[in-house]
Amino acid sequence: MHFKLNNVIPAILADRPSVRISGIWGQAIEWKKGDFIKITAPSGTGKTTLVHLLYGLRKDYSGEVLYEGKNIQLIDSSELANLRQLHWSIVFQDLRLFPNLTARENIELKRVLQNPIVRVEQIEEMASQLGILSILDQQSMHCSYGEQQRVSILRALMQPFDFIILDEPFSHLDNANKKIAAALIEAECKKRSAGLIITDLDKDEHFDYQVSLNL
């Protein structure tokens, strides 16, 4: 299980000078399952764009993004759904929770979208670890951004995956909660022997990265 990027340049960044010195854009890169990859970049250099094209949300780029040798641009909607249910998990920078559902329902939805691999009791255990047990039955739109971020992290851990893609996942968490969340994510990755691709503004030591790249 691996991602391969061949000379990928997003259309919206093609004319920017920063692309020429990027460690990812226009390069040939391969990330294997189990690798922990850190991508550091300042704002506006395309972190979210990278996340979206890895996750198959954007197709406006030149070059190729391959997963298991298959060009993501050419994958049909059924296969893409299968990858998102069983092989890729994600925490969006903008979280993307259903505002009308409770935190628990948002998490549960992801758990039952495919054959569940996490027991219902484990949701509460993990929620307790992340400090969001008390808000599980609140509508997510009434939760603080930090709480929503943790709900979003917990949601991403409800499914099987080979890679978890995290787009600035701790931006609204304090250091103590960052550590707890990172530990939980790492443990779940180890359980699945999965890789992790995280983007952030700064370097950090939340995980033991095998690859660290500047965008």
Binding site: L57, S77, S78, A81, N82, R84, Q85, R96, F98, L109, K110, L113, Q114, Q159
Partner: peptide
């Protein structure tokens, strides 16, 4: 919007 988000999260259009 809900359908787009469901598909984004991995719901298959067939599902």
């Amino acid at each position: 919007q809900e359908i787009i988000l469901l598909i984004t999260l991995g719901a298959a259009p067939k599902q």
